[in-house]
Design a protein around this nucleic acid. Structure first.
Lengths: 231, 231
DNA sequence: ATGCATAGTGTAGATGTTACACCATGAGCT
DNA sequence: AGCTCATGGTGTAACATCTACACTATGCAT
């Protein structure tokens, strides 16, 4: 790495694709923010912002999540860095994109923000997006679809206690395909990652389902021993 | 993305983990460059350099590959972005790391460079590296190991014509585990991605093996139809 | 002609995957 | 109390895939 410091520097931002799962509609959703300022004024965009000197991009992403969407302690992972010089019409802005997963119930549709308006959109009814955010979102969607098959990230989208049917519906929503009920249960229970809470659903007009929770401790243990989680 | 332009900006670089496969030693190797200047003067480092304004990080990575290692038209993909503020002792430098795969024979050990010395190191005999390059290299190693299982990237490391035994040895070197000869051939041939060139090895003191080549066209076709390449 | 090194090939048993249908339970209603 | 209704919860047989494993074929060197 031969260094010279005289080069002009591109600006650096982070942007986050925040997924939530709407159990009542059985849909995967994304949190978008309506831009108050040009360029793309009035268009919807991913929440994000400037990376500050002295702060890692992970830190910047968490800070923006907090500032723009009021989210704390959510699942967050780096996705990809987008750097086409023309992606921002003003100047060369490079963005490190992140993917976040949240429990929708904890974070109601009109998540509070500084100034801008925020809303959850279903993936099938996306508005036109600012910048190259459609590309970023597509990348995130592919990532979650492939990742959910071999890592137990689905639980990040559900409340801490859930029924097996809810879990299955979530997987179906993320993968966009129906799954066989008996096989789904058999496999998931065989992995031994779920803990039966002993509780059951309340207030349902039919047989109440058992409530399960994800046993993260057991997962970490199994992972070290070379577990092969795979749906 | 709320913008203000007064922030100081971190510097942005690209670094590349360049893998080559040494068929005679059955080893995966990495191209490193010895630093001529501080910090980490004299230490080995990944080739890389500044991203210029108006240039994507992909372009920057290709330019650096050319300038520092004389490499053109190689397989290149983005790996991860490393951004810890203390990773460069001088100031906050964020780097977008790339992974490149080359045919070692085309690019002999002492690849020409501007000023610095370059050399291929086997993964088991790495020198101490500058910056956080050991971390980047480890990330790249994990990536190639998982990626080679479900995408046909092994061919990027071999000459265009190769024997099945060479292919198997390459996989064994990358994965770090022995594979069964008959099963390996059965599976690979069943995928229907190899073209028999009709030629055989020359100048060997035993039965000559058939030479095969990767049929990229057929692969692209099958991929669109939802091929499941997997070793 | 023999030796030697590597090329090239098949199968049986075990394991994992798929497709598929019925009884159980509990709330709500009459 | 008994029925209805909606969803919960369960097993198996056919099929496909994966694994382990050993011998013959070829061609050069001597």
């Amino acid at each position: 790495m031969s260094f010279t410091y005289e080069y002009p520097r591109a600006a650096l931002t982070v942007d986050a694709v925040i997924f939530g799962y709407d159990a009542s509609e059985n849909e995967l959703r994304v949190l978008l923010i309506q831009r108050a300022l040009p360029p793309f004024q009035g268009k919807w965009a991913l929440p994000g912002g400037f990376v500050r000197v002295g702060e890692s991009t992970d830190e910047a992403a968490r800070r923006e999540l907090q500032e723009e969407a009021g989210l704390q302690k959510v699942f967050l992972e780096q996705l990809y860095t987008f750097s086409a010089p023309e992606r921002d019409p003003r100047e060369h802005v490079i963005t490190v994109a992140y993917m976040a997963l949240v429990h929708l119930l904890d974070h109601p549709p009109q998540a509070a923000t500084d100034a801008a308006q925020a809303a959850w959109f279903s993936l099938s009814e996306l508005p036109p997006l600012a910048f190259d955010h459609d590309q970023i979102l597509e990348t995130a969607h592919r990532r979650i679809q492939s990742k959910i098959r071999y890592e137990p990230i689905g639980f990040e989208l559900l409340p801490s206690k859930f029924t097996l049917t809810q879990l299955q519906h979530l997987y179906e929503a993320v993968l966009g395909q129906a799954l066989d009920k008996r096989n789904f249960r058999k496999r998931f229970l065989a992995m031994d990652l779920l803990k039966d809470t002993g509780e059951v659903q309340q207030d349902v007009a039919h047989r109440a389902a058992a409530l399960w929770s994800f046993d993260r401790r057991r997962y970490e243990r199994l992972r070290k021993e070379g577990l092969n989680f795979s749906l």
